[in-house]
Design a protein around this nucleic acid. Sequence first.
DNA 1: GTAATATATTAGTCATCACTAATATCATGT
DNA 2: ACATGATATTAGTGATGACTAATATATTAC
Lengths: 110, 110
Amino acid sequence: MHAFDVLSDPVRRRTLELIAQKELASGEIVNVIEAEFGISQSAVSQHLRILRDAGFAQVRREGARRCYSIDPTGFEDVQGWLDQLRRYWDSKMESLATEIERGKRSGKAK
Amino acid sequence: MHAFDVLSDPVRRRTLELIAQKELASGEIVNVIEAEFGISQSAVSQHLRILRDAGFAQVRREGARRCYSIDPTGFEDVQGWLDQLRRYWDSKMESLATEIERGKRSGKAK
DNA sequence: GTAATATATTAGTCATCACTAATATCATGT
DNA sequence: ACATGATATTAGTGATGACTAATATATTAC
C-alpha cells in the first residue's frame, strides 16, 4: 500500500496523531478510536498493521501489551514527494521573477 | 474529498508533477497520462476536476483549451498536518534529551 | 492447566471510487 | 449554419478496501 493511501484514512491519521504525542498500548488506542469513530477493536488492529507495514508506526512488546509509537520512516517518501513538487513550482516562480527583473532592466516590462 | 484522498491516486500525483513543472493544456496532460497509464480522456478529465475542486490545480481558459497549473492552496492542509505531527514527535525527542541531560547532571543515568 | 485479558488474524459483506462508453458543451474555421 | 476539435459530464460497472463477527494467539494470574 502506497504511503499516501495509508494517510488517506481518517482513522489512521488520528491514530498517528495519538502515537506521535506519546507511546500508547494498542488497547489505549482502541479506546480513543472506538469512542471517536465507533469502530471495533478488530478494525483498529487492522489499521495498526497497515501503519506498521508502511513504516509509520513502531511496535514494542511489553508483556501482553503492544506499545505503538511513531516511526518517521514512513513519512520520508511523502515529505520527499511534496518537497520535490515544491522545488518545481518554486523554480518556476524564480524564473518568472528573473524574467520580470530582466524585463525591467531592458525596459520591456509592459 | 479530503486532501490526502486526492493525493492517494497515482494518476493525480503524476498529473501534479506535470503541471508543477509547467502549465499544460488538458490535451497535453491526457497524452502523457494516456501513454503512461493507459486510461481514457474521460478518466483524466475526471481526475482534473477532482484536483480543481480540492484546490490542487488552477485552470485558465485559452480558447477551446483549458490550461492547468499547480495551485499551492491544496497542499496547505497536507503540509500543515505533517508539520503538526512532526512538532509532536520533535518535542518528544527534546524532552527526552532534556531528561537524559538532567540524569547526567544528577548522576542518575544508568 | 484453566480462566481472564490483550491483541491479531481470517472470512465475508458493503460502500466507494476509478474506469469506460456514450454524450454534451463550447470554441474555431469554413 | 455546420463540421471539427478540445474538453467536460453522465450512467453504469468492477475492483479495492474498511468494516464486523468470529476465531486464533499470546501473556498473566490463579
